[in-house]
Design a protein around this nucleic acid. Sequence first.
DNA 1: GCAGCATTTAGAATTGTTCTAAACTTCTTG
DNA 2: CAAGAAGTTTAGAACAATTCTAAATGCTGC
Lengths: 135, 135
Amino acid sequence: MPATSPDFPDRLRAAGLRPTRQRVALARLLFEGGHRHVTAESLHVEVKATRMPVSLATVYNALNQFRDAGLLREVVVAPGRSYFDTNTGHHHHFFVEPDGELHDFPSEKVTIAGLPTPPKGTRLARVDVIVRVRR
Amino acid sequence: MPATSPDFPDRLRAAGLRPTRQRVALARLLFEGGHRHVTAESLHVEVKATRMPVSLATVYNALNQFRDAGLLREVVVAPGRSYFDTNTGHHHHFFVEPDGELHDFPSEKVTIAGLPTPPKGTRLARVDVIVRVRR
DNA sequence: GCAGCATTTAGAATTGTTCTAAACTTCTTG
DNA sequence: CAAGAAGTTTAGAACAATTCTAAATGCTGC
C-alpha cells in the first residue's frame, strides 16, 4: 500500500478512466488490501456481495480497461480462464494444478540466464515463469 | 526423428490407445515431420485436407488423450486458446504477441536459479518459461 | 465371425467472454 | 446548475472454444 491513502477516483482519473461508481467499487475491492488474483467471475461474486451490484459485462470491461491502463496484469495459466493480478511489478507465479490456485513469488531471487535473443523484427515484451505444482 | 521408422499403430498401442483410423491419421500428421505446434482447429483443418475426414470432437478427444499419454504437451499462452506441442522434452517458448505464433527454444542454455520451494504439500510438476515478444 | 467394449460422430450443451443497442451517468461549458 | 455531448452500464444476445450426449460404428479377442 502507498503511504498516501488511496483516492480511487483520482487513481482512476490518473489512469485515464472516468471514476464511475462501478469502477470505483471494483477498484476498491481490487486495490484496497494486499495483492490479489481474481477472475471476472470471482470479482463479480464479490462485488455483488456489496450493496452495489455491477453487471458481469462491466466487470469484464473494467478488468480489461484496468489491464490496458497498467493497473492490472493478466496471467494466463489455464486454458479458458483468465486471471488478473493486482501486482504489476516483476514477479512470477506458482500455479497449483488441480485446483487452479495462483500464488506470486518475487522475481528478485530468480535469475534466468541464457535466454536466446528474440526473433528478428520483434522486441521482448515480458518473460513469464510459471511454476506448476501438484498436490 | 527416431532411427526406427515410426509405426503409428504400434506407437499408439504402446501409449495404451487403440490405433483407430482417425488416431493414426492424426498421429501421422503430428509426429511424421519435425516438432509442431497445433490447435484443435488447425489440426482439424489439416486432417480434413487429407482424404480422411475426422470430426472436430475426435480431434479434441485425440489431443487430450495424446497429452494424457505423454505424447503431446499442452502449452497455455493466450486466454481461450490451447496449443499442443509435439516436443515433450525440456524446452521453453517464444510467443509472438499479436499474431499468436509460438516457437520453441531449447532449455539447455537456459538456467533458472533461485526458484522458491513449492508450497507445503505440493510437488513440482513443471516450470514453464514464456518469452513474450512483440513486432 | 461375433460379441463386447471402445471410439467416433453430429449436434446440442456448456463455459468464458465479447457485442449490441438502449438507458443512464459523468463531464463540460455557458 | 442546466443542458448537451460523450462515455458507461446493462440485460440479453451472440460468439468462440471446448465438452457432452446418445446413437452408430469399428476394433479386438475369443
